[in-house]
């Protein structure tokens, strides 16, 4: 078994004459949290969707755990978990029912009680998704992505729109999922999030990867080039103040 669970080589996707993904190559190690960063329109989501077998691959190859994605889309879907950006679920459907349905699409059954407990949603088992708060919805969305016990979990902007407490709570959850041996590939706009969670990050712009390394090394490289912040770096920032004042306790 190779150390890399995902090998992406020269991946390409064109929308008309626009190269949304323009020759992207990287590999993800088994059991790490890998982040894809970049401004809007950089091609992050398109890259993820090609790896997830959601979108046809126009060029290049993508091999996940030894399986060629473009040739075995059903097999790939069977072994991954996906939380798409702004995931939404059918209304008037209990969370347990939704989980049962998602599990059934993999031909499996799921212990909904345990899964919901792991995501701190036990008391919401009979609730409908439209009654959940933002943080609860994201946690449920991750629960739904875990019903098939995936080898790789894809999270597309998992913490966008959440309050600082819910964000920290989700970080803990993602770390505990990683600790259970699941490889996590995520996109985010928050650099603090990437720094905290990701073992390595790829920074994309204009459909290309322009940097790929661990957050620490990327920062050191920048400093080596003589970069200096205009403002003296303080020992705390405003978010630290916010968390200190309002506590880490998860709301709603």
């Amino acid at each position: 078994m190779s150390n890399a669970i995902l090998e992406v080589k020269n991946l390409k996707k064109a929308y008309g004459s626009n190269m949304a993904v323009d020759g992207v190559s990287f590999s993800v190690k088994r059991g790490e949290v890998f982040g894809i960063l970049g401004p809007n329109g950089a091609g992050k989501t398109t890259t993820l969707e090609m790896i997830e077998a959601m979108r046809p691959i126009d060029g290049g190859t993508c091999v996940l755990d030894g399986i060629d994605v473009s040739k075995n889309s059903r097999k790939i879907k069977q072994m991954i978990g996906v939380q798409p950006q702004t995931a939404s679920f059918e209304e008037k459907t209990k969370l347990t029912e939704l989980l049962e349905f998602f599990a059934s699409t993999y031909g499996e059954r799921v212990d909904t009680t345990k899964l919901l407990a792991d995501m701190q949603l036990s008391e919401k088992a009979d609730a409908y998704p439209e009654s959940l708060s933002g943080g609860q919805r994201q946690r449920f969305s991750i629960a739904a992505a875990l019903v098939n016990k995936p080898t790789v979990l894809f999270l597309d902007e998992p913490t966008t729109g959440l309050d600082p407490q819910a964000r920290r709570n989700l970080w803990d959850l993602i770390e505990s999922i990683r600790d259970n041996g699941v490889t996590v590939i995520l996109t985010t706009h928050y650099m603090d999030e990437a720094e905290k969670l990701c073992d390595r990050v790829a920074i994309m712009d204009g459909g290309k990867i322009i940097a790929l390394d661990s957050p620490d090394k990327l920062i050191k490289k920048l400093l080596k080039r003589g970069f200096k912040k205009e403002k003296q770096v303080a020992q705390a920032n405003l978010e630290d103040v916010f968390i200190d004042l309002t506590g880490k306790e998860l709301r709603a």
């Binding site: 959601m54 996906v82 798409p84 059918e90």
Partner: peptide, 20 residues
């Protein structure tokens, strides 16, 4: 409506087949 809200897209990430 389910397409606009991305609900069908979410189903499409699973191995479910159209006939199912």
């Amino acid at each position: 409506r389910m397409k606009e809200r991305g609900i069908l897209r979410r189903y499409h990430t699973t191995p479910i087949r159209v006939w199912q």
